[in-house]
């Protein structure tokens, strides 16, 4: 077997574009998931009647069904009901559905991890519940959530490969297209693996460094 480097070179522009698409889908999905989580977490934490049951149901549903099936539902089942959307839109909607559920749990857990004693301590100097939230609970919950938050960001970025199933031209879709067209299976799989490592590993390292820096700065230990 010979490795066709000239062919690999010729595909690089397309892969560069694919990386762009992966990052685009991933980053948009992270942002919209965060918005969903920021709305949902307080609903769970304050146990807002009726709504908190719906949110809990959503979280369980999203976390206990495979992403691929969620994606097929959005892309193939919704048009049958009269809602037609592009592959890209389906990708964002589905990733947000999943990511929102995970991030909701992360934020909820972060707030619940703030020790009760810190709340009593704040109340004992006369802080109102709102001041307590702003000056004690949120800063501490934010720091406590960081590791899980970052882990989930990377998880979402990696899960973008699933959206290749609805023809969004990200890394996996591009790889599969080239394999189907030119039968350069080994070359394309090697390129894909390399891109994934180069893309996700530095990101992983960067985020864990950032996380350490933040904790260090805040707690000064």
């Amino acid at each position: 077997m010979t490795f066709d480097f000239a062919f690999i070179l010729s595909t690089l522009p397309a892969f560069l574009k694919a990386v762009g698409v992966t990052l685009q889908v991933g980053l948009i999905a992270i942002a919209t998931s965060l918005v969903v989580a920021l709305i949902n977490a307080p609903i769970l934490l304050y146990r807002i009647p009726v709504l908190h049951r719906l949110v809990a149901l959503y979280v369980e549903l999203a976390r206990n069904t495979p992403l691929l099936i969620q994606l097929f539902f959005v892309y193939f089942a919704l048009p049958a009901l009269g809602v037609k959307i592009s592959g890209f839109a389906a990708a964002i909607i589905t990733m947000t559905f999943l990511g929102g559920a995970y991030l909701t749990e992360v934020l909820r857990a972060g707030v619940e991890a703030v020790p009760v004693a810190q709340l009593e301590s704040g109340r004992s100097i006369g802080l109102s519940e709102l001041q307590l939230l702003r000056h004690v609970i949120l800063p501490q919950a934010g720091l406590l959530s960081l590791p899980a938050l970052f882990a989930n960001f990377i998880f979402l970025l990696k899960e973008t490969t699933v959206v290749s199933a609805v023809a969004v031209p990200e890394i996996l879709y591009t790889t599969k297209s080239y394999i189907a067209l030119y039968y350069k299976t080994y070359e394309m799989l090697a390129v894909m693996t390399l891109i994934c490592v180069l893309l996700f590993l530095p990101l992983s390292l960067l985020l864990s460094r950032l996380e350490r820096r933040l904790q260090h700065g805040q707690f000064g230990s």
Partner: peptide
């Protein structure tokens, strides 16, 4: 309190000023 319960994310001075300034 028994276990002090200072606010871990704030400096000593910020711990002391939170009540006087905000409350």
């Amino acid at each position: 309190f028994q276990s002090y319960h200072l606010f871990g994310h704030m400096t000593v001075l910020d711990n002391l000023l939170l009540g006087p300034l905000k409350v």
